[in-house]
Computed example of a mutant assay.
Amino acid sequence: MILTGLLLGAALGYVLQRSRFCVTGAFRDLYMARSSRYFVPFLLAIAIQAIGVAALTGIGVIAPEPASFAPLAVVGGGFLFGIGIVMAGGCATGTYYRAGEGLLGSWVALIFYALFAAVMKYGPLAGFNDAARARTVGDTTIQETLGVSVWVPVVVFSAIVAVLVVRQIRINARHRTAKLPARRTGLGRYLADVVWNPWAGGVLLGLIAIIAWPLSTAAGRNGGLGITTPSAKIVTFLTTGDVTLVDWSVMLVLGILVGSFIAAKASGEFRWRVPDASTMLRSGGGGVAMGIGASLAGGCTIGNSLVETSLFSYQGWVSFLAIMLGTWGAAWIFLVRPQKAAAASRPAPVLTPAA
């Protein structure tokens, strides 16, 4: 049954590569460009999953267990993770699918991300990580605090997202861009030539997130999509040979690499790309921050910002905000400030008197 993880991961990798869907870009663009072009589709993915998970739970197919809430670890870890994904040039899933495209900088970020997630979860810093995550508060979910059914936050959130979707569609209609001609016709055109719009990415991400729950449950793992823990398990397996670590979630993340590689090859976008030394160093540092931050926060932009938010857990939503703030802070340090410095250093134009 764990092979279903590989198949679903391949589908996820294919969708991410063709839609260019990355939460880092969604958060960054919201700050730098005041654009919600990817942010609202990401909220739509959360809403779709929330409805699906609540329905599957109601009929007894799955039994989700929201994460306990450790405020200091979640806020600090989420903020650090947000900084890391800007340095690395992509969130956890974004790093995986870009590695599948042949970006060596993403491979560096991915290796350090998985390595330091393993250090935090199974290695010398496991004690520190466990102690930080043990400082929890009472309630774990919004519905638990309010004493209501999970359907209450699901309906309210879905209604808010529906309003934002309508608004975003109207904005997109006013800013249509020209599309390049496709090389193929028919189904191949849509599968390989045309870059899928963010709505396709958001809807498919939400549906894949729903499917992950029963498939993972059938394989003996109670959970949905996850990236950080399985990445740490891969490193630990490679160093210890413990085959019990190779579960459904490990197959999922390996599948992302496979799916994105297939999509990149089919579209002609795969090629090995070697960044300069400074970019490689920053990618490695970003990977370190991602691994440590995601371990402390209990998840990444998938495990927390997509999955735990759909359960309306405090860990999910607080981490969501902390990651976003970390992304904005890093965007200012690494992107906005250098741009302003470069603009300030340019000589002023010389004005010549009119003849």
Rank of each mutant, 00 (worst) to 15 (best):
residue 302 I to W: 01
residue 156 V to L: 13
residue 5 G to D: 13
residue 86 V to M: 08
residue 169 I to G: 06
residue 347 P to N: 13
residue 3 L to P: 01
residue 296 L to M: 14
residue 168 Q to V: 02
residue 257 L to V: 08
residue 97 Y to A: 03
residue 69 F to N: 12
residue 127 G to W: 00
residue 291 G to A: 03
residue 160 I to T: 09
residue 201 G to S: 08
residue 69 F to A: 12
residue 137 V to C: 01
residue 50 A to H: 11
residue 88 A to R: 08
residue 282 R to S: 10
residue 136 T to C: 03
residue 88 A to C: 01
residue 203 V to E: 02
residue 30 L to K: 04
residue 289 A to G: 07
residue 142 I to T: 14
residue 233 K to T: 05
residue 42 F to T: 04
residue 84 G to D: 12
residue 80 L to F: 02
residue 269 E to D: 15
residue 171 I to W: 10
residue 316 G to D: 07
residue 61 V to M: 13
residue 175 H to S: 12
residue 98 R to Q: 12
residue 190 Y to N: 06
residue 89 G to E: 00
residue 244 T to H: 12
residue 73 A to H: 06
residue 62 I to K: 05
residue 349 P to Y: 03
residue 134 A to W: 11
residue 335 L to T: 12
residue 291 G to I: 08
residue 77 G to E: 04
residue 190 Y to D: 11
residue 328 W to Q: 01
residue 177 T to G: 00
residue 148 V to R: 09
residue 231 S to K: 00
residue 141 T to D: 07
residue 186 G to Q: 04
residue 302 I to H: 04
residue 59 I to S: 11
residue 23 V to P: 00
residue 118 A to E: 03
residue 102 G to L: 01
residue 267 S to N: 08
residue 107 W to G: 00
residue 324 M to A: 13
residue 146 L to V: 08
residue 269 E to A: 14
residue 340 K to L: 14
residue 299 G to F: 09
residue 300 C to E: 05
residue 330 A to L: 06
residue 258 V to W: 06
residue 108 V to F: 02
residue 170 R to P: 05
residue 228 T to E: 11
residue 45 A to C: 04
residue 332 W to K: 07
residue 172 N to S: 14
residue 191 L to E: 07
residue 86 V to N: 09
residue 296 L to S: 01
